[in-house]
């Protein structure tokens, strides 16, 4: 499986991505916005996580892709569908990018690629995403790819002892098909 956008390649994450991705994910400013990523990230846990993600992909339970910059051939982050619920034909999308690559529209470009894959290839009917309300950049990405703000769950997540509010964004198949 390989997805291509103008500047990016999205392909299943591999254990060989650890040397390129680990320094990027083990970053306080990156982890601050993520639900599933601790900081500091114990290095010995990253390869096993990738292995588990690959197994989950074989079971079609999640789809974790490395995002590779065409220009350099280097992975710059990751994007995926988690919590794929086939009985309800929906999935949750999540992503992160290394700090040196922020502000170039890569998240928007990769996320558009994933929406296309989710709706057109997987046949999903709804894709949603969460972001901490303090993460304005991610909310912007979700709006830019055509997701609708659906609500905010107050104090729904505790990170480092602090209760955080979460934005919920979603897009349904018909909206994606009708995109400009």
């Amino acid at each position: 499986m390989l997805l291509e956008t103008e500047r990016l390649i999205l392909r299943p994450i591999e254990e060989t991505d650890v040397p390129a991705l680990f320094p990027l994910i083990n970053d306080a400013d990156v982890a601050r916005n993520l639900m599933r990523v601790p900081y500091p990230y114990p290095e010995e846990q990253y390869a096993p996580w990738i292995r588990k993600a690959r197994e989950a992909m074989e079971r079609k339970e999640q789809y974790d892709m490395a995002v590779v910059l065409k220009e350099t051939g280097l992975p710059i982050g990751a994007i995926g569908f988690h919590d794929v619920v086939w009985s309800h034909m929906r999935a949750e999308m999540g992503y992160w990018f290394g700090k040196p690559y922020w502000g170039n529209g890569y998240a928007t470009e990769a996320a558009m690629g994933m929406l296309q894959f989710g709706f057109d290839e997987l046949g999903l009917e709804r894709i949603h995403a969460y972001s901490f309300t303090r993460n304005k950049a991610s909310a912007n990405v979700l709006r830019k790819i055509g997701m609708t703000y659906e609500g905010s769950a107050r104090h729904a997540f505790r990170k480092n002892g602090e209760f955080l509010d979460i934005f919920l964004f979603g897009i349904i198949r018909e909206e994606f098909a009708a995109r400009p």
Partner: peptide, 15 residues
């Protein structure tokens, strides 16, 4: 009330 997740569940073909 915190929001509405559109089409979150599918039952007997209806969202």
């Amino acid at each position: 009330y915190e929001g509405t997740a559109r089409g979150e569940y599918k039952k007997l073909g209806v969202r």
